[in-house]
Design a protein around this nucleic acid. Structure first.
Length: 417
RNA sequence: CGGGGUGUAGCUCAGUUUGGCUAGAGCACUUGGUUUGGGACCAAGGGGCCGCAGGUUCGAGUCCUGUCACCCCGACCA
């Protein structure tokens, strides 16, 4: 891509956003606040998010989940069935309004609509189990938005749902999804821990959150030395949940756990029959009897994952994207005398399948380098005086923070490795 | 929703305390020239309903009332 085509105007001043990464995204002109909690994404940011989505999708499919797409605009009657219309509209978390034929909401979450989907497709125990997911926007009129895309009113979420004929089968799938989630975060090059959490408005009894450590995280978790046991601080306020935890972990000593700030990236739930009983989610079992199916629910906040990746991979100079999600691997910057050589290199790299950006905006060398660092390229390919002298490309490797000089063949081999 | 704060140029902000000439700076932008290896320099230029509405006053960015928007702190959440 030629940078002039993208429409990036980087800013030299920084505002006062609490998270450095968010500030850098504004400065890099990758994030635009259109209103409180409502953001537009630039080319780099959306490319990174698309890569995250691809990784999530591939792993889910590997673990036996099938993608669907359910509406975000949803009718009130569905929400009346589950009893959550009043909960979500009372606490104003849901955007709802009147249309031509009744009332609607923009979905804050998807249990109701997926149940409506399931009622059509699950009739017999022979139809179970199934596991479906979707990746789409969710809308929540947050009481307070925070930290740029870390908590916004419109956000991309992957939400998945599984349906089972027995409690035991639901638990099996829950464990399967837990494995899947760890694999996803591993592929995203992120360190996460799973922590015991409360189910609150979601229903059901058992749930775990996937957290990454972060100074700016809104959640506090308690975790032991070897990271084998962790729980959300909120559990301490809930006697029942705490009691349950103590039963399954006999040697639990709350006082020995360390408190750490975290960002919640994902949450998986054993919902049981909470929704199916309320919403006519029945199947016929082996004996011909009607029975409500057991459900599991599995969410990942894609935008928040994106935000967390930025936060964990930036410094004062800018971002350095992890390889797995980098919007572009490299950028070519050049002095005037090398314009033609740079254009030639750009074409041949593209031909070889390297995702490279040609920095074809007029600017001084200094600002080209500053921009390149701000935007988070992994490798900055420089055609300057040294190229004129000996025809070697200078590569600034932001991943390992070193410099090297390569000819074209070596460069291509390096970038494709 | 409670508490605190901010709205002035595309961006970051001075100016408001104590009302007074034609509203400022830096960055960005346009034109010309000199530059060209870590956010260059010189010159000229464009750009403002001072959030919005009303009021006080000879006179309001500045004072008063209302209103809207946004930010920060608390409960909520992926």
């Amino acid at each position: 891509m030629r940078i002039k085509r993208i429409g990036i105007k980087t800013k030299h001043s920084r505002g006062s956003e609490e998270a450095l990464s968010q500030e850098i995204l504004f400065q890099a002109s990758q994030l635009k606040r259109h209103a409180a909690g409502i953001y537009g994404f630039g080319n780099f940011l959306i490319r990174a998010r698309n890569k995250i989505v691809d990784i999530i999708r591939k792993n889910l499919e590997d673990f036996g989940c099938a993608e669907v797409s359910l509406p975000i605009l949803q009718p009130k009657n569905l929400w009346k069935e589950s009893g959550r219309w009043d909960i979500y509209s009372d606490n104003k978390q849901m955007f709802y309004f009147s249309g031509r034929n009744g009332e609607y909401c923009l979905a804050p979450t998807g249990e109701e609509i997926v149940l409506d989907f399931a009622r059509d497709n699950i009739v017999s125990y022979k139809d179970l189990p199934i596991n479906i997911f979707q990746i789409g926007n969710k809308y929540r009129d947050e009481i307070r938005v925070r930290g740029g895309i870390l908590r916004s009113k419109e956000f991309l979420m992957k939400d998945g749902y599984s349906f089972h004929s027995s409690f035991e089968d639901m638990v099996l799938e829950y464990e399967n999804m837990k494995k899947c989630y760890f694999k996803i975060f591993k592929d995203l090059e992120m360190d996460v821990v799973s922590v015991k959490a409360l189910n609150s408005d979601m229903g059901g009894k058992v749930s775990e959150e996937f957290m990454c450590f972060s100074e700016i995280g809104e959640d506090k978790i308690l975790i032991n030395e070897d990271k084998t046991l962790a729980l959300n601080e909120e559990i301490l306020q809930d006697e029942k949940a705490l009691e349950m935890l103590k039963q399954t972990n006999k040697d639990l000593d709350i006082n020995k756990l360390k408190v750490v700030n975290c960002l919640e990236l994902g949450h998986i739930f054993q919902l049981g029959q909470f929704y199916s009983e309320k919403m006519n989610g029945f199947f016929v079992d082996e004996t011909g009897k009607k029975k409500a199916y057991y459900m599991g629910c599995y969410g990942i906040g894609v935008n928040r994952v994106l935000g967390a990746i930025c936060e964990n991979n930036c410094d004062e100079e800018g971002l350095v994207w992890p390889k797995a999600v980098a919007p572009y691997s490299s950028v070519i910057i050049y002095s005037k005398e090398n314009e033609k050589s740079a254009a030639n290199l750009y074409s041949s790299l593209k031909e070889k399948g390297v995702d490279v950006v040609l920095y074809d905006k007029e600017a001084t060398f200094g600002s080209k380098i500053k921009d390149s660092k701000l935007l988070g390229f992994l490798y900055i390919i420089i055609l300057g005086n040294k190229y004129l002298e000996d025809g070697l490309y200078e590569i600034e490797d932001r991943v390992n923070s070193n410099k090297m000089f390569l000819n074209e063949e070596e460069l291509i081999r390096f970038l494709r490795s």
